[in-house]
Amino acid sequence: MNPADPTVPDPTVPDLPATGLTVTGLTVTGLTVSRGGIPVLEGIGFTLAPGRALVLRGPNGIGKTTLLRTLAGLQPPLAGAVSVPAEAIAYSGHADGLKATLTVAENLGFWAAIHGTGGPGAALEAMNLAALRDRPAGALSAGQKRRLGLARLLVSGRPVWMLDEPTVSLDAASVGLFERAVRAHLAGGGSALIATHVELGIAGAEVLDLAPFKARPPAAGGRGHPFDEAFA
């Protein structure tokens, strides 16, 4: 076991906004996800306990983004069950949803208001953005934008984070900030599902390789969808 027990908060991490997370794990069973109506991953099953992180691995195009979007409730699965409702999941995709003409504080304040969780102050501190709070988001560097996008997760107040390539365009120091934020989230009883190619310094993170779940092309005659067989 890793010496850094994930349940003990890291003293260097500033306090995060009180979230009142409902501590639930995430259990996925027999999930089949599709892109454009065609199954890409099938039979996915895993359990994510509260306070733990799970890293999704797999080559580009295998369907990591599709899986995360399905879990976040943006598209329906073809089959299978997810134990938590989409309302418990904070999704962060390739795009950060930032408005270039709004300031950092306005961008974050908007999401805090939408999620009904206080102000953006603590999240700005955690992501080291407090000094930039009045700068328009359009004037930020790529890494700063990414950090602002991740700060949105903090203000969402949701227990399960779904992160799609969160460290893209982050330098080493920013990756460190990000890891700290994830650790603090886990310590607070949250959990995180992270699709990434880089090694993250997150204690006790399990790794799930998606390659075994790659959907097989249906046999001729299409037994996958017996009713619509003429299409397969």
């Binding site: 979007r69 976040a72 409730g73 999704y91 995709g93 949803g97 930032l98 939408i114 949105r152």
Partner: peptide
């Protein structure tokens, strides 16, 4: 614009 910068995804997963 919201579709391009990903805001629409985030709004669709928001509590409202």
């Amino acid at each position: 614009l919201d579709f391009e910068d990903g805001s629409l995804d985030l709004l669709a997963t928001a509590p409202i």
